[in-house]
Computed example of a mutant assay.
Amino acid sequence: MKKLNVLLVCGSGASSGFMASNVRKAATGRNLEISIKARGEAEIENYMDEIDALMIGPHLAYILDEIEDYLQDRPVKVLLMKPEYYSTLNGEAALDDLLTLF
């Protein structure tokens, strides 16, 4: 698998920072090359040309339509994270979910 560039988004960016860190640790433990950045939702457009996947906090489901507009024909996979692992910041479960897209 090639190196994946992932953008992880939640509202303000605080919890997404912890989640990104936990996914990074999980990926390192599995010898996977994943670059994961945590940003606020307002910054999504700035990263669309650089990423392979976009992970979105479960409370942001309402922005999925907007994201489809940003994507246009870009081959970016979009994952709405599940509340059960997002709420506990479970990086292993989040990584498992992400990998199902590839």
Rank of each mutant, 00 (worst) to 15 (best):
A26N: 02
N90E: 02
Q72R: 12
A42R: 12
E66Q: 15
G91Q: 01
L98Y: 00
L98V: 02
V78I: 15
E92C: 02
N22R: 15
F102Q: 03
D69I: 15
N46V: 08
Q72W: 02
F18V: 10
E43D: 08
D65R: 09
G57E: 06
A20I: 05
G91W: 03
A26R: 05
L54E: 10
E43R: 14
V6C: 09
K82I: 08
S12C: 08
V6S: 04
V9M: 08
E33R: 14
S12Y: 02
A93E: 09
N46D: 12
A26D: 03
R74M: 03
A42I: 13
N22V: 04
I56V: 15
Y85Q: 04
L71F: 06
E66F: 10
E33P: 05
A61D: 07
L80T: 11
R30Y: 04
R24Y: 11
L4F: 13
I67Q: 12
L60T: 07
D52V: 04
E50N: 13
S16P: 01
G29Y: 01
A27F: 12
A20D: 06
L64K: 14
L8M: 10
G11A: 12
Y47H: 12
A61K: 13
A42W: 05
K25R: 10
Y70H: 14
G11N: 15
K82R: 15
Y86N: 02
Y47I: 05
D96S: 04
A14S: 07
M55Q: 07
A53V: 11
A93W: 02
D69C: 10
K3I: 12
Y62P: 04
A20N: 06
L79H: 08
D52A: 10
K25W: 06
D52M: 10
V76H: 07
N90G: 02
L79A: 11
E50T: 09
E84V: 04
F18H: 05
L80A: 08
S21V: 00
D52N: 15
R24G: 01
L95Q: 00
G57F: 06
E41K: 14
G13N: 09
K25P: 01
D73N: 12
L32P: 03
L98T: 01
E84S: 02
E50D: 14
E45Y: 09
H59R: 13
V23Y: 09
G11L: 14
A42V: 11
T28W: 01
V78F: 03
G40M: 10
D97E: 08
E92Y: 01
E50L: 14
N31W: 01
G11E: 11
A38E: 12
D97S: 04
I67Y: 09
A61Y: 02
L99F: 01
F102H: 00
A26C: 03
T100R: 05
S16Y: 03
P75M: 05
E41S: 13
L71W: 00
L79D: 04
A94M: 01
L8E: 03
R24C: 07
